[in-house]
Nucleic acid binder design. Structure first.
Lengths: 368, 368
DNA sequence: GACGGGCATGTGACGCGTCACATCCGCGCC
DNA sequence: GGCGCGGATGTGACGCGTCACATGCCCGTC
């Protein structure tokens, strides 16, 4: 008796039900695609929804199902190509699966900041977490909060194998390293990312493994912070001695800075010093000289993250492998991949490909 | 009588109330910092919350208050420095204000994609929207959905003035242009971004205005897409004629590509052709040569977006100006600015500053 | 000593989509 | 004709934090 025509309130299933001449439960069944609804009834309900501009109340559904259908992304606040692209892909994949994405970025890597960010996400009742950040620290913070939410990262750690993700950074790093070795380089420096980034560690491991396979002695990797500024400073420092002929940088930004230092030293990049980067950021082809780098399929990585996470959310916790292949998701993914490929106007020639990683020779130029 | 000790259910205020020996309403009052609670009672309740690991149920609160305390960000899916940094800042500012951020990126700029993304955000019951994307199209989509959610963009349009934001891109573009003019250049090309990006339009307007002030004739701006690849292609094309001596690029990526083309043509950048970029991405200092560019304070921009949006959300709709200055927010913002400044290890020298925009001379090098 | 006022706290209803269960209808069967 | 069955639909309760209102209490006041 209370609610009249155009109340201030948003329409609820009861409003729809009244208009369609059915019970609110029937409306609910239509919403949930229950099979036991006559087509004619369903049509009437849908009409009523349409004319009322009905939108299900997320809060109410959440309350009763105690599922938020939201996942959280915890990112470092540094703006890098890889993480950003992954976030986009994660968001799209999650949306396609009917999940919302809530982000929290880390103003710093202090434990308190991490805990605050996690707390924020948990307040949003996220059902799962994708971590694109210093992973070991986040893991510690999660443990300290003692709240168990499924989460995935871009790469597995020793501590919990089941979060593994298979774009294989180790292989990518090996490819990059092998490339330099095949060019004849025997003293190669490695610029790595922050230690507690799993990606950095994996790439470093790949580098060391490949060097070891070739029986080439290595110097200690240089711990960087992903930035071009660091690459530049490192280059300035290392070039004072010139006890090397090649550098494998863990990402393209640091490689850019290093290139800068090489130019500053009056040296020639393909000639005197070879550099290989990692990530294949869109700008890499326009560095001076164009950078040889290892392409990472970040969107694919993001999509796999979501698939893995959703597999854990929907299936029983513990399974891990087949979740990536659940039918509805596989279909969408294939579609997206196809369209992405069609729209890519890249002019570089891919070199040997292997599980989502490839080495690119920038603009066809011989590798440097 | 039903719920015992450790049920499967998460604890509710009633559980807390029982443990603290008060009514559920008292617990609610503690949660909402009601003043009329005795300190001793509050302490008891807080203790109970602590020991139960109580976390307010977001859904229930949302349901009853019909406020989600979430804002949406609609971003283009291109990974650019400016948008990404803004998103981070928006997220942090929103979090500081107790809002969550839900993102939706646009796989394409097709109207359907925009509508789908908006729909997704509205499904999440976001209370407001920050748009970092082709803005005119989004506006159309919003209108077509006929759902009125407050939203802000990075810059005002003619259509709806009250979304204005004050990091002044026009001034920034004027500074860049003036710089080239002061160097003596009289034939200057402008590489602009996609037309329906407000930022692109504003920078173009600034360019044209400054040129006009100096009575220098202009050629039509070259419509780009923000990418380095485009800058490269544009450079290739333009350099066939060399009917210009300087270029003002709407962002640093396109400038990078252009620089590449200049090198390819065997020309010297400070000497033969001058280039000024826009954004001051962290990599700009390491281009060859280091790029002169206009720094944008994207984090500040993001923060202002949030302040503006929250002002609209919290205050009565219609007010616009003073909302940015609401006390709690001003305090936080100041704090964050201070810390950001302290941690910035930039080595460049800022040139004349004006409302969040400054021209940087990379590494002290004379401008090119 | 009765009354008004303010403070601290309690009571019950409410919102909205879902769940468990009830009801109704038509049909086939013995 | 009564019974059971299954499909389609309705009924009422529930979850949890908040709102509006009620209650109890202490204090001062005339």
């Amino acid at each position: 008796m209370t609610s009249d025509v155009t109340a201030g309130r948003a329409p609820s299933i009861r409003d729809v039900a009244r208009l369609a001449g059915v019970s609110h439960q029937t409306v609910s069944r239509v919403l949930n695609a229950s099979p036991s609804i006559r087509d004619e009834t369903r049509a009437r309900v849908l009409d009523a929804m349409e004319s009322l501009q009905y939108r299900p109340n997320r809060a109410a559904r959440m309350l009763v199902t105690s599922r938020s259908r939201a996942i959280g992304i915890l990112t470092s606040n540094r703006v890098h190509y890889g993480p950003s692209s992954s976030v986009m892909a994660i968001e799209e994949a999650a949306r396609a699966a009917g999940y919302a994405v809530v982000t929290a970025s880390l103003p710093s890597s202090e434990p308190e900041a991490i805990i605050a960010a996690l707390d924020h996400l948990l307040d949003q009742a996220v059902e799962g977490l994708v971590v694109i950040a210093p992973q070991t620290r986040v893991f510690d913070a999660l443990a300290s909060l003692s709240i168990r939410v499924p989460y995935v990262t871009m790469q597995s750690t020793e501590r919990d194998e089941w979060h593994a993700l298979s774009v294989d950074q180790i292989t990518g790093a090996r490819i990059a390293t092998r490339h330099l070795l095949e060019l004849g380089h025997r003293s190669i420096y490695h610029l790595t990312g922050p230690q507690d980034w799993i990606e950095a560690e994996a790439r470093m491991r790949g580098f060391l493994a490949e060097m070891s396979d070739w029986d080439v002695p290595t110097t200690a990797p240089i711990l960087g912070d992903w930035t071009a500024d660091f690459g530049y400073r490192a280059g300035k420092e290392l070039l004072r001695f010139r006890d090397f002929t090649a550098v494998f940088s863990s990402n393209d930004q640091m490689a850019l800075g290093f290139l800068h230092a090489v130019r500053d030293a009056g040296l020639d990049c393909p000639g005197d010093i070879s550099i290989v980067g990692f990530d294949d950021i869109p700008e890499a082809a326009h560095f001076a000289p164009p950078l040889t780098t290892v392409r990472q399929d970040f969107p694919e990585l993001g999509r796999r993250c979501v698939a893995l996470l959703l597999g854990q959310l929907e299936g029983e916790p513990g399974t891990r492998t087949p979740s990536c292949r659940s039918s509805w998701y596989g279909r969408r993914r294939r579609h997206r991949l196809a369209s992405a490929r069609a729209s890519a106007p890249r002019s570089r020639q891919p070199l040997p490909t292997r599980d989502g990683v490839e080495l690119t020779a920038s603009r066809g130029r011989v590798l440097h």
